[in-house]
């Protein structure tokens, strides 16, 4: 870890000014990912701008019935917030499925959105990696990739996005708000993360130097009955090998509305819109859920050692949707 300058941002304009569009400056919030990456040499900033104490730590209802969530709200506070739990249980569950109590106390909403992949080739600076060192190659394609991507295929990078929270946000149509020196901006979550394509080092559509200030969640009555299920290689404190965020509105045996997103299968949280199209208006049966999962996963392009993710995601989708249907029936 090389030496660096450290500044505490007094306010949002001050943070932007301190970052000053310097490519070697980084915002620091909870630090759970950035400090780790600095230790492994993946990140070597010359300046840290500490934004953790900015007044962006509120969760507030919006007039239209949604929520606005500040960027420095900790993962713990987000998951514990009564309105989050009431309106968007899938989001609270996703956050609680991630990391550990300690890390959730430190990590922030903004930082969680920006966390980097756990691909072991990315975090080992002695290895090639197109995401870390563009053009150097992707050893995961021919190497150890049993937890790599099966959807959104790119030969340049097969790493998966590690966030649980962002999978729920994808299902909830969250909008990311940011500030730049030129003024504020916003990005729907579906546009926030860029496809890996040939430029896996470009992960988000945030303008250079932008500071995430928060999220808004639009009202989503369907989310009242929602769930996050995560499968991992240990019962807790492990990254997903597959996860599903789902919300389902069933009336009279018919799916009226549905939201579905997958985690740990792509370079970004995977909104399963193809599956949603199959679901909405169809009978609320296991057959429908299997058809929906199959339609989404038809695009899967597994590598030699991660083909299991296709049946895993298929089964998990059917299971979660069936559970939600069972609840609706009660």
């Amino acid at each position: 870890m090389k030496e660096f300058d450290y500044r505490r941002a007094p306010d949002v304009p001050g943070a932007l000014a301190l970052l000053d569009d310097r490519p070697d400056a980084r915002y620091l919030a909870g630090g759970t990912n950035l400090v780790d990456l600095m230790k492994s040499g993946v990140e070597r900033p010359a300046r840290l701008v500490d934004v953790r104490e900015l007044p962006l730590d509120r969760v507030e209802p919006t007039p239209d019935g949604g929520l606005r969530i500040g960027a420095t709200v900790t993962n713990s506070d987000l998951a514990a917030h009564p309105e989050v739990r009431r309106r968007y249980p899938v989001l609270a569950q996703a956050v609680l499925a991630g990391a550990s109590g300690q890390l959730r106390n430190m990590a922030t909403v903004g930082g969680n959105l920006l966390q980097r992949t756990r691909c072991a080739y990315f975090t080992d600076t002695a290895k090639p990696c197109n995401k870390r060192a563009p053009g150097s190659g992707c050893p995961a394609v021919t190497g150890e990739h049993h937890n790599h991507a099966v959807l959104g295929a790119s030969r340049s990078c097969v790493a998966v996005h590690p966030s649980d929270m962002a999978v729920a946000l994808a299902a909830l149509d969250a909008v990311v708000h940011y500030e730049t020196a030129d003024g504020p901006g916003e990005l729907p979550l579906g546009w926030f993360y860029l496809p890996a394509g040939d430029t896996p080092h470009r992960e988000t559509a945030l303008p250079a130097g932008a500071l995430i200030t928060g999220l808004t969640l639009p009202p989503a009555p369907v989310a009242a009955r929602s769930r996050y299920r995560k499968v991992r290689e240990r019962a807790s404190y492990a990254f997903a090998i597959g996860s599903v965020a789902a919300a389902l509105d069933v009336r009279d045996g018919v799916v009226r509305d549905a939201r579905l997103a997958f985690g740990a299968v792509a370079s970004r949280p995977w909104r399963a819109r193809t599956a949603e199209r199959v679901l909405i208006g169809a009978p609320a049966t296991a057959r429908t859920y299997a058809d929906a999962a199959g339609a989404e996963l038809a695009a899967a392009r597994p590598l030699p050692h991660n083909g299991y993710k296709v049946p895993l995601m298929h089964n998990l989708t059917v299971a979660v949707l069936s559970e939600l249907t069972g609840e609706a029936a009660r």
Partner: peptide, 27 residues
């Protein structure tokens, strides 16, 4: 582990449990 992966360095910061290995002292 010095990487936030084991919890051995857990302390309380303003009453909340935190891993001290990923907390910069200056911050």
């Amino acid at each position: 582990c010095d990487q936030g992966q084991c919890g051995a360095c857990t302390v309380l910061a303003d009453g909340r449990r935190t891993v001290a290995c990923l907390q910069l002292a200056v911050a």
